[in-house]
């Protein structure tokens, strides 16, 4: 399938969930899977594979203060490469030594690692600006989220 994910500043409404309620980290990851599924990128069941990765290796997906990047390997439950953003009304703990609690969860769906690289590199550009994570956590509209993601920091 030849499909490139939409630019970050054109993330569809369905791929964004704001002030969502998650009692624990598994629920938070499932919310990211639900957003990915709502946008057509994956099945809801992809969430279980993202959770399994954390159960196997620990909460290493919490890669920066307040931010978890939920993902798993490409698989038949992924229909197109894409990403989803979930912000939590109440931050949850993933059990990470430095970066808990998490208030922003990015869900990543990849069909092939090669297709994935461009959008992940763009994420690095966006999030190297330290104000983006707290900005997303505080966002009240989906346009605000798109605007923050579209702001690319020059390396």
């Amino acid at each position: 399938m030849s499909f490139t994910p939409p630019p970050l500043d054109q993330l569809p409404d369905s791929a964004i969930a704001l002030n969502a309620i998650a009692p624990d980290w598994r629920s938070a990851v499932r919310l990211a899977a639900e957003a990915l599924a709502a946008a057509g990128y994956s099945d809801v069941g992809y969430g279980d594979r993202m959770i399994a990765l954390v159960e196997e290796y620990g909460p290493y997906i919490v890669i920066a203060p307040g931010l978890a990047m939920a993902h798993a390997r490409p698989g038949s439950d992924i229909h197109a490469p894409g990403l989803a953003i979930v912000t939590l009304a109440e931050p949850v703990s993933f059990g990470h030594a430095h970066n808990d609690p998490v208030s922003v969860v990015i869900g990543l769906a990849a069909t092939e690692s090669d297709q994935h690289v461009a959008s992940v590199a763009t994420l690095a550009n966006v999030f190297n600006d330290a104000s983006v994570i707290p900005g997303l956590a505080a966002a009240t509209t989906k346009d605000e989220v798109r605007q923050l993601l579209g702001r690319i920091l020059k390396p």
Binding site: L53, E56, Y57, Y60, I61, I63, M69, H71, A72, R73, P74, L108, A110, S113, H116, V117, V120, A121, L123, A124, F127, N128, P155
Partner: peptide, 19 residues
């Protein structure tokens, strides 16, 4: 490195290259 080799390790690769 990361658990799946496609998500967080790629972020690390991009930023290590910059560093």
């Amino acid at each position: 490195i990361c658990g799946a080799g496609i998500g967080t390790s790629e972020i690390l690769r991009v930023n290590a290259t910059r560093a």
